[in-house]
Design a protein around this nucleic acid. Structure first.
Lengths: 206, 206, 206, 206
DNA sequence: GATGAATGAGTGTTCATTCAT
DNA sequence: CATGAATGAACACTCATTCAT
């Protein structure tokens, strides 16, 4: 039994190393410029070993994606089922998305880039995104019902705007030196998403 | 001389045909799935001819990008130099960006997808974007000075939010059946960008 | 025009060289042991060149097969449409098969070996054989109607026996030093096919 | 000792299972499409175990061949040493060959396909065949001496014709739906081998 | 200048074989 | 001994680029 679990442990460690190397290379070069040979080389194993863990390059990418996004998935489910107002849910959602997407899982952006246009290859990844969209839609609809979100905006547009603001912004943040701190940045994004860029109207004098 | 310019004209026509075909194929298949052979075939010339106009696949893509964004570039310059308020400038900017990015130049998205991470290859394209960002930054700073934009938001963040909202949203619009009309969509994006998703406060009763 | 046909000629010459080299290697090593790389090497061209002439290894094999068997095909059609008795037709058929299969086109045997069990890969080749079988069946049925062939034998069995005798025998002849001359061998095969191995009964004394 | 022989027994059982699985897969897919991994999987052992019984894929195939043909070998020896006429011996030989080759040991055909051209790999298998040929040659020569076989036919040709008729025909029978029953088929093959396809001459009226 | 066949490095993938556990 | 993960050479095939015509 101990024997078994030792082997199993090694296997998982190796798998982890492969995923790590893949993520690194993906970030350095992008999907198409990263070859299985390079991944193997970086891990320090033979090419064939990769195929013992993942049945194809595509499968490796999907596995990487799943690993990367499992936590996010769980977090989103949690937020969705909280007993708080929509505004707070969306706030938490932005926090969560920013945290996972930018800080912990930048591989997201690369895969997204590759996935948008290659529907067939990354069908599975798309479903992940659609799941996320559905959860957020429900929250936004809740907020409209509460009267706190602008009911004249289509929910779908609101969802994409959320992604658009976060992904675009954080991606830049990740790849470039930035003057703005992470916390400030997230605060600004929330501000824009909730109130836009218009200067706040001064509270009417009482 | 006249002979020369006739030849030159034919050359330019050919070049135009190549760019056209490239754009089509890029939209149909994406960058990596489009081969020089296919482009040549669609134009109806030999592969070698492509290389007489563009020294590499990459150079062809950059040339395409430049052609595609020349109009946008001009339009942005025009808006930047208008004698109107910042709010109006940004409104026009959103109209313009939406128009060019989604309606006229969807190739943008493909190139952007390919370009984000491959810094070296698409350096030239990045400069285009940086130019655009600079113009928009100036406008936003103007708006802050006017007191109509939220001065507590870093201009850079505001710029990226603008791109984020437009690109993400319109890309989806381009690739999927959509319930929202183009005009409504642009209206919603402006609304979100200026006011966020919060429900408008009712005008204080007089 | 002359220019055109020069290039075309060179192309065909090269194609011929590829087919030649393929045939040689097929005979030396068999289908699975012959790699596209080896073929290219023997021809003295790059691997890619092979693919400009034949879209896959399989296609190359089929093309080789077709080239090799075109003459046989024509010859069989001719025999089938002759205005002579069935016995003579079968005699000619054996001559023809022996000539083409053993002397001129030994590649046949290799392809047959590969084709029997890999139905899907070599469907096209199988159809060639079925065409041949059909022609021979008609002749044999004719012979039965004439009363000269044994009507109690199923035609199908007779066809396969014809192939069996010729292919098995000639294949050996090709690959081994042989005491029997080619002409004698063909004579013996005809003898066996028509009369079996039983000693001829002496003509009854008058 | 008893322990030893128990282990030995298990070892042999395992070996038998491996050979069985190999035979099955060979029939289902052919030599090149059958991997050591698949064989191991079907047996339910690890790949490494295969190599404890057979030092290579090739050795496994040869061992399978030997096992498969041991019975045939014995049967042929028996027939060869019988005290009956050559005609009867050949008749029995055809029965035996048909029985073993088609009914019990179709694996023969696959191996033969693979073996014909790869002299080096299957040298050992070839020797088996040569032994068979030698025995049959002796019988045929005996028949010639008896005056019942056509002495003008070279014995070697007669041997190959025997193989040719049986193998070609039965192979087809094995792989295709057949109208002819097995017994009839064997009868037809004997008929052709002994008398050819010519219609039997009516007994002279007396 | 136009052509398109030739090039060859590169890709993802397979699989017989080995060997540490 | 059994195991099965690791190996790495080999394979079929692609495609941006070159260059003789």
């Amino acid at each position: 039994m101990i024997h078994q679990s030792l082997k199993e442990k090694q296997r998982q460690e190796r798998e982890e190393l492969i995923l790590q190397a893949t993520q690194e290379l993906l970030l350095e070069r992008g999907y198409y410029e990263t070859s299985m040979g390079e991944i193997a080389q970086r891990v320090g194993v033979a090419k064939g070993t990769l195929y013992q863990h993942f049945e194809s390059k595509e499968a490796l990418m999907i596995a990487l994606f799943k690993r990367e996004f499992h936590d996010l998935h769980v977090a989103i489910e949690n937020i969705a089922s909280m007993q708080v107002g929509a505004q707070e849910k969306i706030t938490l959602m932005i926090d969560t998305l920013c945290y996972h997407l930018a800080e912990k899982h930048p591989v997201f952006f690369i895969i997204r880039n590759a996935s948008d246009l290659e529907a067939e290859i990354h069908e599975e990844i798309k479903e992940y995104f659609n799941g996320m969209r559905a959860r957020i839609s429900v929250i936004l609809d809740g907020g409209k019902a509460e009267g706190i979100f602008n009911a004249s905006l289509p929910t779908e547009v609101m969802v994409e705007a959320l992604f658009g603001i976060i992904v675009s912004r954080l991606f830049k943040n990740f790849h470039q030196r930035q003057q703005v701190t992470y916390e400030d940045l997230v605060g600004h994004l929330k501000c824009i998403y909730f109130h836009g860029i218009t200067a706040p109207t001064p509270a009417p004098a009482g």
